[in-house]
Design a binder for these strands. Sequence first.
DNA 1: GTCTATACGATGATAGAC
DNA 2: GTCTATCATCGTATAGAC
Lengths: 211, 211
Amino acid sequence: MSPPDTKQRILDAAEHLFATDGYHATSLRCITHAAMVNLAAVNYHFGSKEALLEAVIVRRLTPLNEMRLGQLEALLQRSEQSRQVPSCREVLRTFVEPTLRQRQNGSEKGDFVTLIGRTLAEPRGIAMTIFMRHMDPLMIRLYQALSLALPGLSQQLLFWRIHFAVGSLSHIMRCHERHSLVPEDVRIDLPVDELVELFLDFAVAGMEAAG
Amino acid sequence: MSPPDTKQRILDAAEHLFATDGYHATSLRCITHAAMVNLAAVNYHFGSKEALLEAVIVRRLTPLNEMRLGQLEALLQRSEQSRQVPSCREVLRTFVEPTLRQRQNGSEKGDFVTLIGRTLAEPRGIAMTIFMRHMDPLMIRLYQALSLALPGLSQQLLFWRIHFAVGSLSHIMRCHERHSLVPEDVRIDLPVDELVELFLDFAVAGMEAAG
DNA sequence: GTCTATACGATGATAGAC
DNA sequence: GTCTATCATCGTATAGAC
């Protein structure tokens, strides 16, 4: 019944190493060494290195998406009851806040956000199938909600602006370390709540811009 | 004197294959086969696979940055002569338009934009050193220009909003293929000029948002 | 069912002959 | 400058022990 923790140990080690060093730079031998399991255990439990990446992602993406979708549906229900369309900021917040908040949790969950951001930028094949399966239902609902919140936007404009906003969010998901161009008096390690508001200020204004 | 075209043939083949299949998925043997040169020629001329990637990027990034910096300096000079601060849209345009316009040129130059977008998202080591060396001077000038255009913004706000805008741009640099969530009546292959204006509408509104 | 030991082909890198 | 030969390491596959 209770499964041996081999799978869990592999998942934990892989999550941390993938996020820290990148998917390609992490060898299975390095993962199995850190997890103190045999090399072949990866292929036995997961089938391949790429399938392991998917398992690592899905483990955290599923509950995260449930939270995001739950908050979105709750918002839509409230707006329906009050006969008011939801605001663009409220809609975006249901997506952005759970995402960025995960970064400040225990280290392994923060790793996950970085990993997602990086994997989103991978060439197709590795990430595309994973995200198509697990993100599409949520994204479709987000589309509908934003279409309600921004009735003045054409389908075309709405699509492109969501595209821009997603790109921006995925960027801050993976880039949260000090790099060369940060002025001295700028805080790169902003508290999550402030970062969420900063991002929403930017994204909402972009979404609502005159077209 | 005139170098044999071995280096050029390697650069051309690598640029296309890196952009099409991704850096890690492209083997040196595949590159040298396409370039019709010996495997060891890569390490002789460039030193390593990663150094080859840098050479591929620098070859096109240098003239692109010269164009972006040239347009920015010209704008700043005009604004100084007219005693008017440049607009945020004008400043951003000097960066965005040359970038996206390169995508529609000959196929190999379009490859390059995709490659840049992807490399920007790589974990540190591969890309960080390349971009620090070749982007920082331009980015510093962009900072100054945007600081002029948006005098109401604090250093902190300016930094974060540039961060958001760069993330958004890098996203559309690498993602310009049809994916699952594109509605039927949305054009994913927008003409470059329209895409530039669409992006500027979004980014300028985000930059100028009330803080 | 789980796990281990071992082997295979392909990769990036390098040394040395020409 | 170019090539062949060779190396350690990679992801993967399988046979067999527990």
